[in-house]
């Protein structure tokens, strides 16, 4: 009887779940979808919400955010390369600049596909002066990405001062590296995202470097295990010619990323001893299996130590 009452109450509560609450729930699940799995999450949540209008609202809000946050890469319709979905290349909510080929891709966020391509206008591209720096860095970075990432995609954007056409001014470039592996048939997905910001400063003649790397991995065969890591870096180098800057900046990126990978390996190596052991040991402190057959002994010992006032 009590159960029936509870259920009736809860059913009543459901009726009060407003459209906004339902949509918020859908947005929450979509926003927390692991990399490469948003379409599966979308399918589930669409079924559960049972209201396509609300689902569409949630999807049109969540997919662009998810695609940008995960630096989704999409193949261009002419197969000439890939465009990275990132705020740094966003022209409007469905158009993204691909700086290497100076094209703008039209993107369907929910289908996660490029639907169109046009040449970028002059307004959308940096000045020839800035382009020299951007282009040189892109070339060097491409070489590095090709050698370090089996499936890495990179792009370099000018995010400040793109119209500067003479030396003597500050400007910023941002380099993005995005590598992902989707293998739903093997129950695993993962991604590596690097964002490197280079601030070219005229007064100090230095380039300030800020980096952020995030890695995510999800393995879910008969379980659910997720890795997420994040690290930030700061560095600087001398403001030089476009070519020299490109080589120097790429070396710095390579150095930090390799070091970071090594520190991750070290974390994994320490996992069994120093980390896992603080949760549960592999063997008891006695280093032998627990003597279940002899537990009476424990009770006696415990009583004895209690009486003698020793132990716990």
């Amino acid at each position: 009887m009590a159960d029936c009452g509870d259920e009736a109450d809860e059913a009543g509560a459901q009726a009060e779940l407003s459209d906004k609450e339902k949509k918020d729930i859908a947005v929450w699940f979509l926003s927390n979808a692991p990399v490469g799995e948003i379409s599966y999450v979308a399918k589930d949540i669409r079924t559960l919400i049972g209201d396509d209008r609300l689902y569409d609202m949630a999807a049109s809000e969540s997919f662009p955010r998810h695609n940008k946050a995960h630096l989704l890469t999409l193949e261009l319709p002419d197969r000439s390369g890939d465009v990275i979905i990132t705020g740094y290349g966003e022209i409007d909510k469905n158009q993204y600049l691909e700086p290497r080929s100076a094209q703008v891709a039209t993107v369907d966020h929910i289908k996660q596909a490029c639907t169109g391509l046009r040449p970028a206008t002059d307004d959308e591209l940096p000045s020839p002066y800035i382009e020299e720096f951007r282009y040189a860095l892109d070339v060097e970075l491409c070489k590095y990405v090709a050698e370090a990432y089996p499936k890495g995609i990179s792009a370099v954007y000018c995010t400040r001062g793109k119209d500067i056409d003479v030396p003597g001014n500050d400007f910023d470039l941002v380099a993005i590296i995005s590598a992902s592996k989707k293998s739903p048939q093997n129950f695993c997905n993962g991604s590596w995202r690097s964002i490197w910001t280079f601030e070219f400063k005229d007064d100090t003649q230095l380039v300030d470097i800020k980096g952020k790397i995030q890695i995510a991995a999800h393995y879910f065969e008969e379980g659910n295990v997720q890795l997420s890591t994040k690290n930030e870096f700061n560095d600087s180098t001398v403001f030089q010619s476009p070519e020299d800057c490109a080589v120097q900046l790429t070396n710095i990126v390579r150095h930090h990323e390799s070091e970071y990978l090594q520190s991750l390996e070290a974390s994994y190596l320490h996992l069994p001893d120093s980390m896992f052991k603080d949760l549960r040991r592999k063997l008891p402190v006695t280093r032998t299996l627990f003597p279940w057959h002899n537990t009476l002994q424990f009770s006696i010992n415990r009583d004895l130590s209690k009486e003698l006032g020793i132990g716990k």
Binding site: A148, Y149, P150, K151, G152, A179, S180, K181, C188, N189, G190, S191, W192, I215, A217, H218, Y219, G223, V225, Q226, L227, E257, L261, Q262, L264, E265, Y268, L271, P272, F276, R280, K282
Partner: peptide, 22 residues
């Protein structure tokens, strides 16, 4: 415990090495 440590955490490590091999 073994399964989590060896298999499941091992798989996430394998993924990192796939994305950017040492």
């Amino acid at each position: 415990r073994n399964s989590l440590e060896q298999v499941y955490f091992g798989k996430t490590r394998e993924m990192v090495c796939t994305l950017r091999p040492p």
